[in-house]
Each structure stands twice: as structure tokens, then as C-alpha cells.
Amino acid sequence: MSSQDKGAHDDQQLTRYLLGALPAEEAERLDQLSIVDEELAARLSAVEYDLVDAYVRGEARGEDLARFESFYLSSAKRREKVQFARALLEREGGAATAPATVIRTVVSPAREPGKKPSPRRSGFSPSAFQWGFAGAAAVLMLVAGYLLLDNLRLHRQMSETRARQSEFDRRERDLRSELDQQRTANAQAQQELQRLHGLQSGLDQITAVPLVLLPPSRGVSAMPTVSIRAGTDLLVLLLTLESDDFPVYRVVLRDPANNQVLWRSANMTSTSAGEKKAVSVSIRAGLLKQQNYIAELTGIPARGNPELIGGYSFRAVLK
């Protein structure tokens, strides 16, 4: 690889490659180099670890974040990397508090000797009584040191337990709210289906299968799967929105394996899905194979450039 080539593959480009955001031709070139070129393979690995770490630390933003959640997290292997990075980060958090404990433990006894009665202050010459007193003081200090250490350990355990408990509470709240949203959105999907069926009498013959997709989230959750039976005409995707910020939306269906666009929607407006808003699109079932897909949602502002909102990953299973 020439030095010119090396320069061309900066970290930004490698990041876009890992997020499936490069044009097919460029991606193929990097596919090849990732196997053939030892240096690039190593660089790519380093960039990937940093990318995953940035995600678990909450440093990923904008399109990178959207792509990470829609593309990167669509693979079980890569989700494993994220779990691993999270464990490493959590460990780092624990380790960061450890030195403080050690310092306090060491410093506390060091302040004590100043309070010891000195031979001059006591007015007594060194005697067996004094040595006995000093011995008892030393034992007391050891016991106090032990109790202090034990106390610190218990405090740390309590803080950890509290942190875990609050994490469980938060997760429970999130799951409950996710479940509520799912229920509301399911009802909305049914209504949407009924509306579609009511459009013309011929549509009564159409069989459709709905799939409600929640906004891509930071958590690592299982990929939604839709089963498409033989004879199904339409897949109705209901892409729920975090916030309804655009007058018009567009949806593109991509094959994450090669980033190829398989289908594009016309301009759509959002509809209500319970308390939330959603964008509903109907895709011909015949277009789908048994594989993973990404429905990329783009917001079209009244003025300015379209903005990628996020990618909704799902898996189609043909029955």
C-alpha cells in the first residue's frame, strides 16, 4: 500500500466504513484491504474499538449515532463487542474510585501520631506503664484502622447496591414505557391497516402484516422480526418517532449486507400512534427475502437539507 493510499484512509473514512456509510465502490476497496493489508486491518480494528467505546460512553452523535444503532448493532458479534466495552467501562468506573479509598486509609493514621502524648508533655520518664499505654494505643489504632477499612468497604458496597437498584428501577420504567408504547402503536397499526383496507373495496382482498418499530435506542435490544407467510401482499411498517419535527418524511429500505437501496417511499406525513407520532409505509411483501433490513427514515424540512433521523432494523422471516 502506498503512503498516498494510507493517507486516503483516515480514521473518519474507516469509521464510515464500519458504519456502512461508504459508497459501494469505496466500501469494496476497503473490504479487500481489510483482508489483504495487514496495517489497514490493524488500524481498522483500533478505529472499531474506539468507535464502540465512544458509543458506550455516550459520545456518539448525529448521523454516526443513528448509523451505529441501525447498522452496527444489527450483528450479534458486534453487539458482543458493545457488551464487552460496557463491562470494561464499568470496571474503569469502579477502578477510578479505588485509589481514593487507599489514599484515605493511608492518610488517616498518619495524622494520628501528632496527638500522642510525648514524653516531655507527660512529665514522666519512659516506663513500663508508658510502653504499655503506647502498646494499647497501637492496638486501638490497628482496630480503628481495621474498622475504618471495613466501614469504607461497606459504604462502597452500599453505593454499588444503590447504583444497581436505581439502574434496575430505571430499566423497569423504560421497559414499562416501551411496552405501553408498543401496545399503543400496535393498536395504531391495526387502525392503519383498517384504514388501508377501507381505501377501496378491492383492498379487502389484500393480506398485510404489520410491524411496529420503535425509535432506535442506545440499548442493545433484540432485533424485531416479522414473519411473512406465503400469500402476504404487504408489510406495513409503522416507524414510531421520538419527536415529530418535520412536515414531510421519506423512508428508504436498505439491504445492510451491501447497503443497496431496495425501495423508496414517496413523501409521507406522520400520523398519530397513541401519544406518539409515527410514519407508516406499506412495502410489497414480494420484495422481501429472509434477511435483515434497515428502514432509514429521513426528515424533509420546509427549508434546508433532508436530515437522517435513524435506521429501524428488522429481520424478515419467510414462512
Binding site: D31, S34, I35, K77, R78, A257, N258, N292
Partner: peptide
């Protein structure tokens, strides 16, 4: 190392069993 690189290649292509 070659097996690792190949597996990563197939994984980036979103294959199910890289």
C-alpha cells in the same frame, strides 16, 4: 489472523454466521 479477518469481513457484510 486470516480467519479473524475473514470472519470480520463477513460480519461487516451482516452475514448471519460469519
Amino acid at each position: 489472523e486470516m480467519r479473524r479477518r475473514l470472519s470480520l469481513y463477513f460480519d461487516r457484510k451482516n452475514c448471519l454466521s460469519p
